[in-house]
């Protein structure tokens, strides 16, 4: 345990905790908008910033932020103009960023090896100044994503409806991708640019399996991200493993555990067949001494917008004060 008294370990733990909390928070909205792999693409773009910093001898985080935010704005602009659907533009941007980063790093005399600390993370080499940058950006990300949680939820779920609420949809869409870009850059020293997307998305998916409700899902994802990051780093110290890999595999472990728990939670619900919306002729029955429900034992059949239960050879559904017999 003497490791925990070391300054570089404490800095690494704080950074891991901040990233573990921030990444799933913004990742929730990326999953909701079906942009789960955006973080991966932005990670590629950020490599160009790191390469530029290595070539100019300046701070990598600063240039990674600038290049990654610019890339995020470009991606969102393409999406809003309906031009990102072909994926060709995105592919050029992502792989162009990766190639440019490697090229500039080699021009700086460091080759691809100089990038490895950013590609796969290097928690133990985080300096005090790095930590201040990570803390500042993580605080900004958390304040905005938590403060605007209902608004971000609304536009991620249904942009048209959000517009009719009077929400500044375009502005919030840009804000989400910019925050995603900032998350990528603060995570490049923890899990690395190639693995950051996993920390943004997998805790969200695991939490969705464990908790019912959007808000609970967000907090559950934050908890999983925090435990995976801090626990993964501590485990990596004692087992002498790569922290980024252990952290990401930890989130995958949570996801695997969540699958049977999710199945157990829904096991009592009988599978529902769908027989379509056809409004069959039916009669009414006023009395029925059995209350149908998901665990009543009768086979459930989806019928239009309600569920019937097969009962004595016919379909039977509660409707107000009476029962419909199909």
């Amino acid at each position: 345990m003497e490791y925990l008294a070391l300054a570089f370990v404490q800095r690494a733990l704080i950074a891991a905790a901040l990233v573990g909390v921030s990444a799933p928070t913004i990742g929730t909205y990326l999953v909701q908008r079906r942009l789960s792999l955006l973080g991966d693409g932005l990670g590629h773009v950020a490599i160009a910033g790191v390469g530029l910093a290595l070539m100019t001898g300046t701070a990598p985080v600063t240039w990674a932020v600038v290049i990654c935010v610019a890339g995020a704005i470009l991606i969102e602009t393409l999406r809003q103009h309906g031009r990102a659907t072909g994926d060709i533009g995105l592919a050029i941007l992502f792989y162009g960023g990766l190639a440019a980063g490697v090229l500039m790093a080699s021009m700086a005399g460091q080759g691809a090896g100089g990038l490895s600390g950013y590609l796969f993370g290097s928690l133990s080499s985080i300096s005090a100044s790095d930590l201040w940058v990570v803390a500042g950006l993580a605080t900004l990300i958390l304040v905005i994503t938590v403060g605007l949680m209902p608004q971000f939820f609304a536009i991620s779920a249904d942009e048209d409806f959000a517009h009719t609420l009077g929400l500044p949809v375009r502005l919030y869409n840009y804000l989400i991708v910019i925050l995603a870009a900032l998350t990528v850059t603060i995570a490049m020293r923890t899990v690395g640019l190639l693995l950051v997307s996993a920390l943004m998305v997998i805790p969200v998916s695991a939490s969705q399996n464990l908790f019912t409700g959007f808000k609970r899902g967000v907090w559950g994802a934050v908890g999983i991200g925090l435990i995976s990051s801090v626990g993964g780093y501590i485990l990596s110290i004692f087992a002498d493993l790569s922290p980024g890999a252990v952290i990401v595999l930890g989130t995958i472990g949570f996801f695997i555990i969540s699958l049977p728990i999710s199945s157990l939670a829904h096991r009592h619900v009988h599978p529902v067949r769908d027989i379509g919306p056809d409004p069959l002729p039916h009669t009414h029955s006023e009395d029925h001494d059995h209350v149908h429900g998901p665990d009543c034992g009768h086979t459930a059949v989806r019928h239009g917008d309600h569920v019937d239960y097969i009962h004595d050879g016919h379909l039977h559904a509660a409707h107000g004060e009476h029962y419909d017999e199909h």
Binding site: V31, R33, D158, Q208, R216, G217
Partner: peptide, 9 residues
């Protein structure tokens, strides 16, 4: 509407 997160109530 497109609600992707399956836990949303």
């Amino acid at each position: 509407a497109t609600v992707s997160l399956h836990s949303t109530t």
